[in-house]
Amino acid sequence: MSKPIIATTSLAGCFGCHMAILDIDARILQLIDLVEFNKSPIDDIKTFTKECDIGIIEGGCCNSENIHVLKEFRKHCKILISLGECAIMGGLPALRNGIPVKECLEEAYLNGPTVGRNTERILPNDEELPMILDKVYPCHEIVKIDYYLPGCPPKADLIWAAVVALVTGDELNIPYELVKFD
């Protein structure tokens, strides 16, 4: 039997969850034995070259590109996992939710204390840029998500336990210490 294939991505996240994946330390060698990676920042494969078994999503959706990538993941992965607070509930980027996006843009580019050099008072509007959404969306409001692993970042032991359980089909029993929201 061929090895299960994993894809990962970071949407509106800080890459901290990916760092947490690397926090499994030496077990990464076991992981390479267990699974194959496809599209992922870990191996730098930019586009899906195979259909995957597991897609791991870090970050919520704050712009049109995030939506596009997430939908691609849903299309190409049998199982999707929301990894970390941002994917699950928007996380810190979602602090802007509830505030009109115009107000946020003006604070960021025109009125904030660190915008001194924007002398032409431009709000980024290049057609090449992804379009900003009215709020940051949790991933499960955009596509169906199968599993959730909370934490900011999730504990490496939690990620390890979950991935191993998924790959081996074993039951996942999570100890108290592993489920944390910070």
């Binding site: 602090l95 509830g98 900011c152 929201f181």
Partner: peptide, 27 residues
């Protein structure tokens, strides 16, 4: 709007602790 990672009470919060107790993965 409970952004636990940015909250000073995180780890000492009763609401969060109940989330842990019941292993709330997603609401």
């Amino acid at each position: 709007n409970h952004f636990c990672p940015a909250c000073e009470k995180s780890g000492n919060c009763d609401l969060q602790a109940l989330g842990y107790k019941y292993q709330m993965m997603v609401p």
